[in-house]
Amino acid sequence: MLGMNEIDREDFRNLLDEIGRTRMPFGKYGPKEHPPRGYPIYDLPVEYLTYFKERGFPKGRLGELMEWVWELKANGMDPIFDPIRQQNGGRSRFKPRRPTEWDFGE
């Protein structure tokens, strides 16, 4: 993975565009808890990303993108994702799924 000092402006724009389109495909931020596509990786909490940093990011492109997001957030650059958030209707909120049925024990 290229470091932040080794990437040119156009590549960085492309990287941010790809990050903006990528959603978590598994886990508590995946489609099961955040239907239909999962949580955007740019809004994942830094603590969650740090967990992966310490134990290893997923293999492949998803892991590379998550590592970039962690790097940017860990260096205080979270506002760089604000234009992506505005384009997508604001910051994603983590809300646990509500039950769709209730049993009142008639």
Rank of each mutant, 00 (worst) to 15 (best):
S92L: 03
Q86L: 09
R55T: 09
M1N: 04
I80C: 00
G105W: 08
F57N: 00
L16Q: 13
P36R: 09
P96Y: 06
G3P: 00
W70H: 13
F81A: 03
R97G: 11
R13W: 15
D43P: 00
E6V: 08
E47Q: 11
P99T: 13
F94H: 12
P31R: 05
W68S: 01
N5H: 13
L72Y: 04
G20Y: 03
G27M: 02
F104K: 09
E33M: 15
I84S: 07
R61Q: 13
R13V: 08
G30T: 02
E106K: 11
E106H: 07
D43T: 04
T22G: 05
F104D: 11
L2Q: 15
G27T: 02
A74D: 13
R21I: 12
D78P: 00
E6M: 13
H34Q: 08
P25M: 06
I7Q: 05
R55V: 01
G105N: 11
W102P: 00
F104T: 09
L15K: 04
R23N: 09
P45Y: 09
G60Y: 07
K95N: 08
E101S: 05
G90P: 01
V46H: 00
W68K: 09
I41K: 00
L72T: 01
W68R: 14
N5M: 08
E67A: 12
R93Y: 13
G3I: 06
R97V: 10
P31Y: 09
F57P: 00
G90D: 09
P83Q: 07
F81V: 02
F81S: 03
Y29T: 01
D11S: 13
P31C: 09
W102V: 13
M77A: 14
G89M: 04
M1G: 11
K28W: 10
M77F: 14
F52T: 03
